[in-house]
Design a protein around this nucleic acid. Sequence first.
DNA 1: ACAGGAATGGCAACCGTTTGCCGCCCTCGA
DNA 2: TCGAGGGCGGCAAACGGTTGCCATTCCTGT
Lengths: 337, 337
Amino acid sequence: MDSRDNVQRSRVTINDIAEATGFAASTVSRALSRPERVNAATRERIVAMARELSYVPNTHARALTSGRTETVAVLVSDVTNPFYFGLIRGTQHQLRAAGYTHLLIDTENSGELESHTLSKMRQSIDGAIMATSRLSRRLLAELAAELPLVAVNRMVRGVESVVLDSPSGVAQAAEHLISLGHREIVYLSGPQNSWANEARWRSLVTTAARHGLPVHRLGPFPAGRMSGSAAADALINTRATACIAFNDLLAIGMLTRLRERGIGVPEEISVVGCDDMFGADFCHPTLTTLAAPIEQAGRVAVSMLLARLNDGAPAARQSAVLPTHLIVRESTGPAPR
Amino acid sequence: MDSRDNVQRSRVTINDIAEATGFAASTVSRALSRPERVNAATRERIVAMARELSYVPNTHARALTSGRTETVAVLVSDVTNPFYFGLIRGTQHQLRAAGYTHLLIDTENSGELESHTLSKMRQSIDGAIMATSRLSRRLLAELAAELPLVAVNRMVRGVESVVLDSPSGVAQAAEHLISLGHREIVYLSGPQNSWANEARWRSLVTTAARHGLPVHRLGPFPAGRMSGSAAADALINTRATACIAFNDLLAIGMLTRLRERGIGVPEEISVVGCDDMFGADFCHPTLTTLAAPIEQAGRVAVSMLLARLNDGAPAARQSAVLPTHLIVRESTGPAPR
DNA sequence: ACAGGAATGGCAACCGTTTGCCGCCCTCGA
DNA sequence: TCGAGGGCGGCAAACGGTTGCCATTCCTGT
């Protein structure tokens, strides 16, 4: 296609095509959006003319009558959290492939903003993917009743979701630490309204209990690198020789702080993160962490949503669970002494 | 506001308000969007009723007639490049504050996709902010003639822009290296169609020339961490003791590779990155780099765009230049021997 | 040869807002 | 007292599609 055409101010409407081909506007509309409703020859002529005139359908006009916008919102609590990289990538690819527009919304960690934005957007989107929503279960379920919705890393009855099986990953991490001789593991807690946070903590409790070991929990800490200092300092006050942090951001922040304070990782303390996000493999020391197929999660979420949008069906399976696994790097080692 | 209302399926239109208040729909419309056109008392009643019914104006209907969408597209070449964090943040805040919708588009490093997407979106957006566009000057200028546009980190005649003064930062970096005794500095080149890449290289050439020192250029390398290995290996083949990389992603990739190959940084080679992006302060060794006020750049870009949209004026200043400065960390040190 | 029905295209209403234009009423100055 | 003009509100026509319904044509089976 000639790139000059791309730039051309799109002023050609369905009526222009109608006039040019001699068909009625309604026929043109059908030829373009419901191909089986018109004769093949007709459709061909219309499509050809549309191309020739480089017709671009008007999204708004279409949305106004049909209600469909071919747009899906993806809500993340913080765009600048590298954890979302994969999710954004995944949803983006899948949506683009399906011809949908990808509307990325940063809710800035506020449930308030989540539901508010969504209500404003209601008419502009066909559905939404909510990653790590801060909404209450009730509110989330209510929303899901109004709007096709898929939640990521959040499990709520009545809401389709794709979750990362970090509990089993946390179990792996705990086994890893225990086998290295650690006898006291601390969990550095993330935001208290985070579903994943609870799931991880519970899994750690269970695994440690199986070995008859104590676990403690510190926090909650906001899920940012900044909180790492506070988390590290709190950790130092305990006798623990190993910890699992809510996510890599927190873990990396801790690494920095521990280094500042001259505490050897992993010689004195072993640190495990979660998510294997951007940076986990080049921080110092490199971080042992739970890898999650987050990009795949994005793709799956989109697939579920689109299936729902097209079939109108309430979805076969209610939720997909994706496996996670431990990646051992430099930040974990044998317990001291 | 009651959060339940947020969720409510928005089916109340301007006509409902008209009926409820006894005014005509046109009056309601004016009361809501052109307040000075109606009597204060009238407006008040209408606004009150709108609130009571929790009316949400229909974006599409509005866009259809008025042509304005209150949406601005922000195009980045790769959402998962942390360099864009600040930009996304900055544009987002400023747009949100102005009541605009932020449409983030990942062009996946393809100029083709840039112009294509933009033409598809033409009717859905009021303007666009193009960060590090891959488009040719001509195409970019053509686009700018069609659509209010602000370019970030790209200077083209006839296109408003905000650029980061990395040339002066590169000069600082070069002086820094030279004062440390380095006599041969290599530039690791980024994508060849990147404006910033050229600007940085030219600045390095100039500065080195002032000191009568030779400079070389290696590459081009794609601006990703992956390319770091190739870049590092190429660097090792030269006699250079210091290098400046197109960006931090590349620099961090190099750091990893140099470490793998047992080459000490900064003992044997000093490395300078550009952008001070997420990760530069916790990689190993921490990276000396050029800090750019990229978030501010985003805010400024939005301000320029909005000014243009509101006044319709062709903008007072054509481009804003933001200062950069060198942040010295661990990856640079005295030249060996 | 004819009723029934599928395939195909046109008509016109409608989606929710904006906006040009017109008309009413009130006020003010002459 | 009357005309001019400003303030304010209503009418109706867009905007660019979609879609329910109807008319026509052409098959098909009997």
